[in-house]
């Protein structure tokens, strides 16, 4: 069993108004050193062993459903889940 952590953010070229609002708030709280805030999504998938290649499957799922590649970028990490 693997745990796959998928991080989704808006592409660099896409404005993130939520991120800008949060950065404004941080600046008003005197954290002036913050130069950018991007807000995204975090998905955690538990994936059973199968004969399909894990990377291929995760990429497929990301590109078909989990993200919209017109506006979003993703990256993921794979962790071993200790067997019972």
């Amino acid at each position: 069993m693997k745990k796959v952590k998928v991080y989704v953010t808006l592409r660099e070229s896409v404005l993130d108004p939520q991120g800008s609002a949060v950065m404004g708030a941080l600046h008003s709280m005197n954290y002036k050193e913050v130069s950018d805030v991007r807000i995204g999504k975090f998905l955690e998938l538990q994936i059973e062993e199968s004969d399909r290649d894990l990377d291929t499957t995760v990429k497929e799922m990301c590109e078909k459903l989990l993200t919209n590649t017109v506006i979003e970028d993703y990256r993921y990490e794979v962790e071993e889940v200790a067997g019972k």
Partner: peptide, 17 residues
Amino acid sequence: LTEAGLLPGALLRNKNL
């Protein structure tokens, strides 16, 4: 329709949220 690829582009959150 954009998600299905029948139309190009995508719809984002309104700029003023």
